[in-house]
């Protein structure tokens, strides 16, 4: 039921991508996104797709699993492709339907636009598939440490993020449980008009809010009981340290970025 949500879920297998330092993966995702906007030609997209394919292969996450993450943006994808097909001005008109005009330029542009969006989503979801939420916030905290000097509460932001991320599966499970409990009492969430359906959500939302507040206050209590006082002087059990493979990965990333920029300029 509601458990089937896969968006941003960690996929627990062991691979060289999983073992990379989260900072490398964060920067890598950023570089990949930038590289997709640098190039605007077939060769560039081919290289981008090849790079993505290799990383997916190395990560050992099934392609079908990653594809599933595309479903929620399917509408957005179709919409932007359609817009590009019909609204790109061009000279080689292929089809004229009233005021709608399909040009060769529009078709190619829409095609590349669609590919770019798909690569974007797949590339960034690959990061969350191969990095646990904890590693991710750890990576963010260490990666953004420099900002602390200008007064950004980096540790607090990272802590809030990790708590929020940690609570997502708990709340999903809780919602599932409450839904089932109310269904056991005859509640019906599937039929009726919009208003009836919205009203049917009340028996889920009220207990969910109450339990969220209860959990939040329990957590605050537990943190205080262990003398939590913010990031000052706090050490980590598993401090992030670059290994050889991370440095190699940085090298590959740099080479990839240079290649993409060159492709963008040359073609």
């Amino acid at each position: 039921m509601i458990r089937d949500i896969t968006l941003g879920q960690y996929y627990p297998v062991d691979s060289c991508i999983h073992r990379l330092d989260p900072r490398v993966k964060l920067l890598g995702t950023l570089i990949y996104v930038v590289s997709l906007f640098v190039v605007d030609n077939a060769v560039g997209y081919l290289v981008g797709g090849l790079a993505l394919g290799i990383v997916i292969y190395l990560s050992r996450v099934p392609v079908t699993y990653i594809m599933r993450g595309l479903k929620p943006i399917l509408f957005l994808l179709c919409f932007s492709v359609a817009l590009n097909v019909f609204l790109t001005p061009g000279d080689t008109v292929l089809l004229q339907l009233g005021f709608l005009r399909v040009t060769w330029e529009g078709l190619t542009r829409a095609f590349f636009m669609g590919i770019r969006l798909i690569f974007l989503i797949m590339g960034s979801s690959l990061m969350t598939f191969t990095t646990t939420p904890n590693q991710l916030t750890d990576g963010l905290e260490t990666g953004l440490r420099a900002l602390k000097k200008v007064g950004v509460p980096v540790h607090e932001i990272a802590m809030m993020m990790s708590i929020a991320l940690r609570f997502i599966p708990i709340l999903i499970e809780e919602t599932d449980k409450i839904m089932k409990a109310q269904m056991a009492r005859g509640a019906d969430f599937e039929s009726g008009n919009v208003l009836q359906r919205a009203k049917a959500l009340l028996p889920i939302l009220v207990p969910l809010f109450i339990s969220s507040f209860r959990r939040a206050s329990d957590l605050a209590m537990a943190m205080e009981a262990r003398c939590y006082h913010g990031g000052e002087g706090r050490t980590k059990m598993k401090p992030l340290k670059y290994k050889r493979t991370d440095l190699i990965a940085y090298g590959i990333l740099a080479a990839y970025l240079v290649l993409m920029i060159l492709l963008g300029i040359l073609f």
Binding site: K177, I178, K180, A181, P203, V206, P207, I210
Partner: peptide, 9 residues
């Protein structure tokens, strides 16, 4: 369910 009191609303 277990802890059924969590479903009161």
């Amino acid at each position: 369910f277990q802890y059924p009191e969590h479903q009161l609303f």
